Amino acid sequence: MATPQSTRPDELTVEVVELIGEVVGRYHADYEEAAAGHTLTGAQAKLLSLLALDPLPMRKLAQKLKCEPSNVTGIVDRLESRGLVERHPDPADRRVKMAVATEAGLRVVRALREDLRFARAPLAGLSDEERRSLRDLLRRMLDA
């Protein structure tokens, strides 16, 4: 008896996976372009976007960005030199440095989100119900 992992995906599944790949590729290209418009690399923009949600310790940033802590230090250094990020000691453990987005950094993140054009028009062409359905299906995929 074949296990689910050893069975070949059906044509519909293959097509859906290919479409997801195309969406991801277009999103990344648009994100890189939006970041460049603010004189940021994609990694700098991603880190700044993470910090817009919550201040994070440097090690946690490295985990989220899937890179070495030394790379995060360099990214934070460059953002800090532009006044977009600050380092603060963690109140729970003063040995740990937290990266925090400044007000200027938060403004850049808002502008970045507004600059992302890739999905705006296609999503606007969907009804509210269709957008909710798409959102719910994507959440289910991510929770699986």
Rank of each mutant, 00 (worst) to 15 (best):
V85H: 09
V14W: 14
R132T: 12
S49C: 10
A99N: 02
V100D: 03
E130A: 05
P57R: 07
T102I: 03
L47F: 04
L47E: 06
E68Q: 14
A121R: 07
R87E: 05
R82F: 03
P91L: 05
G25P: 11
E11R: 15
G125N: 05
V16N: 02
R82Y: 02
C67E: 07
G21L: 03
V23Y: 12
L138S: 05
E68T: 14
V17W: 09
L142M: 13
S49H: 07
K46P: 00
A29E: 13
R8D: 10
G105F: 05
D93M: 08
H28F: 10
L53R: 12
M98F: 11
Y31W: 13
L106Q: 14
M141N: 05
K64L: 12
Y31H: 08
R87G: 04
T13N: 09
K66M: 11
Q5F: 13
E80M: 03
A43V: 07
L137K: 05
L51Q: 02
D54F: 10
L48S: 05
E114M: 06
T39F: 09
T41A: 02
Y27F: 14
L137F: 08
T39P: 00
E18V: 09
V16A: 02
T7E: 15
M1P: 14
R8V: 11
L138Y: 05
I20G: 04
F118W: 08
A36T: 09
D90W: 10
D115R: 15
Q44F: 01
R140F: 09
L51Y: 04
L50F: 10
P122A: 00
E80W: 03
E86D: 08
R110L: 09
G42A: 10
L123G: 01
M98K: 05
P4Y: 01
K60G: 01
P122E: 00
L138A: 13
R94T: 14
S70K: 12
G105I: 06
T7K: 10
G74W: 03
A119C: 05
L84Q: 07
R110I: 06
G74A: 05
E33Y: 11
M58C: 12
R117T: 13
A111Y: 03
V85Q: 03
T7V: 04
H38E: 13
N71Y: 12
A101I: 04
G37E: 10
G125L: 00
L106P: 00
T73W: 04
V85W: 04
R87V: 04
D115W: 07
E22K: 14
P122M: 00
K64H: 08
M98G: 01
A144G: 15
A144W: 09
T41S: 15
P69H: 06
V14Y: 11
A144I: 06
L84P: 00
A45H: 11
V85M: 06
V23A: 11
V16P: 15
A121S: 14
A52P: 00
R135M: 02
R135D: 01
L47C: 06
P57N: 10
T7A: 08
V14Q: 13
R117I: 12
G37F: 11
G37P: 01
V109K: 01
G83W: 09
E22W: 08
L142D: 04
V23F: 10
M1W: 13
